[in-house]
Design a protein around this nucleic acid. Structure first.
Lengths: 227, 227
DNA sequence: TTTGTTTGTCAACACTTGTTCACTGAAACT
DNA sequence: AGTTTCAGTGAACAAGTGTTGACAAACAAA
């Protein structure tokens, strides 16, 4: 299942642009514009449960009835968004693995990389962070399992990289990663609705999160199992 | 501004129950049923931005036009809810101050007390936690400042109680309390949509959050200023 | 080429939405 | 007492909602 990322758009009902012809591809394409339309509307300060079917199809440049060719109802579209978001989360870990840990000042470097990634995928992060606690039950649950998977993968990575010196029980590692993840999702939320072009405020936020992470890892190195 | 808590309700258009007569009181009362109606609808898995004016007045047992006697629009009602929620947050601190820290096993005791409080005020916490990151901009901002105030008060309390042994700079204290608060709001969200009557799952969650807090405070005792 | 499949369109439906205006009746004031 | 104020009502509006069914055109398979 390819992802064909980088700004799906265009009004779906447009002429043959380039060399796309097959029926399945066209279907995936407008399905994508529907998903993007939903994300865009949410990025303008709306919650998922407040989106209307017609509103989305309008934004996507498609007639309302077309919606049903791709999703049974809004919930199904929401779950598709969760899946996309989960994919974006996993890609973050994959890229981090490939790039390795920053040479020095590991924590500050990681926070910067992370926040750049959040900005690059602000639509997905805005959706995940925004719908993680409020809104529709099924979607909230789906997001929770995605985040849990992410946390577990992160725990595995940290263990294999021996990033904390001595080994820790997997339960402890998961506890620590849970803390890190919730802190960083919090950070994503803060960064994303920072007024744009305010390097001062941004730097303060970043410094705050760096210190929080330092504190967490300081606690982790001192942690005593079985107490 | 009294609070007249404990389940405002009843259909507003009812007879004189007991000894309420004055016009202002009646007004505050139906205003309260409107607020409660909004909270109730949200507790059924809806986000604030998805609520309709008519829907709220219907739930409150009042005709739609009555809404305008109390709020200019939905945003104003939302901000009123934020204020109520902020009040509930502050009351938590006030009660904690009065009761003093638990005798032994401080952290676990505090977590239990906190979660009981969250359950007791699940409507307010559900609203705050749910709308803190998703949804309408103005409301999100209002919640953020409430939470910041809460964090600052908490930092003051911890300083005065000398809960961390040696003194820490106020910036550090705020950083730590920020971490604690975001962790506990996270906990509130998790607890609130736990399927009911599952003491097993609940105990696991509680244990997880106890360990996270322990780790944070362990890091805090080891924290070195200026590094 | 002919046949079947399927994405997207169009028109129409029964409802719900936010907001307006003129009104009623009782509490509040003089 | 008479008068004013105002929370709550009822009817009406233009506009928007989700969903339906029948239809067009282009791709896929024969």
């Amino acid at each position: 299942m390819a992802d064909s990322r980088k700004s799906r758009s265009a009004t779906a009902a447009q002429a043959n642009e380039g060399t796309l012809i097959t029926r399945g591809e066209r279907k995936q394409r407008t399905r994508g514009t529907l998903l993007d339309a939903a994300l865009k509307l949410m990025s303008e300060g709306r919650s998922f449960t407040s989106l209307g079917l017609r509103e989305i199809t309008r934004e996507a440049g498609v007639v309302p009835t077309s919606f049903y060719r791709h999703f049974r109802d809004m919930d199904e579209l929401g779950l598709a968004l969760v899946e996309e978001g989960g994919l974006t989360l996993r890609r973050l870990l994959r890229e981090a693995r490939k790039a390795g840990v920053p040479a020095q000042d590991i924590i500050r470097g990681s926070v910067r990389i992370y926040l750049a990634y959040v900005r690059e995928h602000h639509l997905h992060f805005g959706f995940i962070v925004g719908e993680r606690m409020g809104g529709s039950g099924p979607i909230r649950r789906a997001i929770r399992t995605e985040v849990t998977h992410f946390t577990n993968e992160m725990a595995q990575d940290i263990q294999q990289l021996k990033l904390l010196g001595r080994p820790l029980s997997t339960a402890t590692l998961q506890m620590i990663c849970g803390l890190v993840v919730s802190t960083m999702l919090n950070a994503a939320g803060d960064i994303l609705d920072l007024p744009p072009k305010q390097p001062q405020l941004e730097a303060e936020l970043v410094e705050g999160y760096v210190r929080q992470l330092r504190l967490i890892f300081l606690g982790a190195t001192q942690w005593k199992e079985r107490s």
